[in-house]
Design a binder for these strands. Structure first.
Lengths: 159, 159
DNA sequence: TATTGTTATACTCTATAACTATA
DNA sequence: TATAGTTATAGAGTATAACAATA
């Protein structure tokens, strides 16, 4: 997989790049995001907005840049996303009293309910569906392997 | 990972979404592509152009749409990519004699050399570096798990 | 009528630079 | 001087519609 091609793959999977870990990761990431976006659609948010909401829920009110840096979104891109969340009535831009340059992004009651009741179910269902072909042990293994890869390559990454 | 958050993760990895397989896959895919793009840069091609070249090399001359469908690139996007490869002298647009609507994209001698001598090395080095934290057995496991996921979700995928 | 490649167009995502208000 | 948020802008990547040549 790393270098050469003489790999035995299922018939319909005998595409040229099916031995490439990069191609596989890219495909898998696209699939998960697509399915997650479809599942989130009825609730009026996108996967990235989900990331913002859950980040606030777990870490408390934070500035836009703090949130963006945790989930890999530029501060200029955060502006539009927070605009959208604010228009949806899910997030409020509250000025940080200690530093009035920044906001303390806060979840609305509707967002609290969404994050703690609805979204965990959507998240679980989507992941269960996507990971269906794997056993519980295999799922744990997969997460462990990818987490180690991402951690190891986090520094070097150009990104 | 599938649903709940009470996961034990390394300190610096205790980000809100580090238990989400979708977030991890997305991060990993970004890292690999970034590193691969950096490695390919000196050779004048991008990861997607690499995909086109290797597809022609393995399956022989094909139409732009045939190639695009195998690596997930729209036919309108293929036009620009092939333009670029043609300007670089790596690919030639030869009319298919049996169906003059389509081309039989062909590798130039320079591309043949690149694909068979240079790129396998670049590919191997990039993957070895990215997969460094995993043992050989773990690498095989990873590819197997992701391949099964991608295959299983290929049909349902909205894309 | 249908299909391949093409062009024009638009939409999303992202990033850079410059501005404002605060520090 | 530096930082958080904002705006304008531009660049990738992608997708839709319409067209010419060919089937």
């Amino acid at each position: 997989m790393t270098s050469e091609q003489a790999q035995v793959v299922p018939k319909n999977l005998a595409e040229p790049l099916w031995g490439s870990i990069g191609f596989l990761l890219s495909k898998a990431a696209d699939q998960v995001e697509s399915q997650f976006a479809t599942a989130l659609g009825p609730h009026g948010i996108t996967p990235r907005e989900y990331g913002i909401l859950t980040t606030i829920a777990r870490r408390g009110p934070q500035s836009q840049q703090q949130i963006g840096s945790q989930i890999g979104i530029d501060r200029t891109t955060m502006v539009n996303l927070v605009d959208s969340l604010e228009e949806s009535g899910l997030v409020e831009r509250v000025r940080d009293a200690k530093d009035r340059r920044r906001y303390a992004l806060t979840l609305s009651p509707a967002a609290e309910k969404l994050v703690h009741k609805t979204l965990p179910v959507v998240d679980a269902e989507t992941h269960d569906q996507y990971l269906a072909p794997l056993t519980a042990a295999e799922r744990d293994t997969l997460v462990d392997l990818i987490r180690r890869l991402v951690a190891h390559n986090a520094d070097n990454a150009a990104r």
